[in-house]
């Protein structure tokens, strides 16, 4: 009896392998950015519940990892859509082309703000990007003598500028593998760096040296890598009122009772300020669709329609409720019509 059950299970599993090797996939496969993940999952779930299609499967592989998987080829074994918290690079686009993925539709879905926040038990911070660069860079320029650098000496915020609080600098942030970190370095560190004239000049002359100087975050314990999990950062901030954290806007939105956002360049990280572009630290969110797959994977067109419907990405749509900053009306219209006509991405 036991033997026959065992044999039946084995036979069934073998039959299963043979079956799926031939059969087509009947659900959409999505990979990519962990920043876009919370938004695309909401759309996928609603799409699955309100239509007769299966719910798409979504993996958070990071923007770069997602594009790599996406560009590997055309066929059932490769993902149909990849999410990205930055635009596809030219090198990646070429790789896609090389593997036969020639028809790609790009969808810009909205913006995400990156927030420097702390516990509401502490005071709100009002910093400029220059302050943040001085607080977090490994090496900083010596005042008054262009071209010279020194190791970052600042231990207290008030050392940088008298208007800042007299507390130890302690910033929790994501590790270098994270897209949030990339965006923070690009939007905050780099622009803070450029506030020094000779460094701004250096960017034009020697881009690599400029990057090495401006993108390197200090490693003496002031900046603490807290892992990819933004919730963990929020919990640590609650426990330590003097620490600041770097995380996505949706986490500030969801934890408004515990955490407050710091003003950056005089602008508070609110929904409206990010949407208007007043708040300087925000980045675009994209996803890319493989056009060839529309023929043999059911539901891709309908998924696109759901994502670009007003009830989803509109100003009062459910994605906005989850913390995504929607596009301005005219841009949304333009992207929407591009998507409807399935216009190819050209880089």
């Amino acid at each position: 009896m036991r033997k026959s059950i065992l044999a039946a299970i084995l036979a069934a599993s073998c039959a299963g392998i043979v079956n799926t090797a031939n059969a087509a996939r009947d659900y959409i496969e999505i990979v990519g950015s962990s920043t876009v993940y919370p938004f695309s999952t909401v759309v996928a779930e609603r799409f699955g519940r309100s239509t007769n299609f299966k719910t798409p499967k979504i993996e958070a592989t990071g923007s770069g990892g997602g594009i790599k998987l996406f560009c590997q080829g055309v066929g059932v074994g490769f993902p149909d859509i990849t999410n990205a918290s930055r635009r596809m690079k030219e090198s990646e686009f070429k790789q896609c082309m090389g593997n036969g993925v020639t028809d790609i539709v790009e969808v810009l879905i909205g913006y995400d703000g990156i927030v420097l926040g702390n516990s509401i038990k502490g005071g709100a911070l009002n910093v400029s990007r220059k302050h943040l660069f001085l607080a977090l860079a490994k090496q900083i320029p010596v005042e008054g003598s262009p071209g010279e650098l020194k190791d970052n000496p600042y231990q207290k915020w008030s050392d940088i500028d008298a208007s800042l609080p007299n507390t130890k600098i302690e910033v929790l942030g994501p590790p270098p593998t994270s897209g949030t970190r990339d965006a923070f370095v690009e939007l905050v560190m780099e622009s803070g760096c450029k506030s020094f004239d000779w460094l701004a000049k250096l960017k034009k002359e020697n881009k690599n040296q400029f990057k090495a100087l401006c993108h390197t975050i200090r490693e003496d314990g002031v900046f603490i890598e807290a892992g990819e999990n933004d919730n963990l950062i929020v919990q640590k901030l609650d426990a330590n009122p003097n620490a600041y954290g770097i995380f996505g806007f949706s986490f500030l939105d969801q934890n408004a009772d515990k955490i407050q956002g710091s003003l950056v360049d005089g602008s508070e990280p609110t929904f409206d300020a990010i949407a208007d572009g007043d708040y300087p630290v925000s980045r675009p969110l994209y996803f890319y669709v493989k056009k060839e797959h529309i023929k043999f994977i059911p539901g891709i067109k309908e998924y696109l329609a759901e994502f670009t419907s007003n009830k989803a990405w509109g100003e009062e749509g459910y994605l906005a409720e989850k913390g995504m900053i929607p596009l301005p009306d005219d841009q949304r219209k333009a992207v929407g019509s591009d998507v409807k006509q399935l216009n190819n991405l050209v880089l």
Partner: peptide
């Protein structure tokens, strides 16, 4: 490690 809503029916479902 993926977001999967549908309940798997067999060892071949995600």
């Amino acid at each position: 490690v993926a977001f999967i809503v549908d309940i798997p029916q067999s060892i071949m479902d995600p």
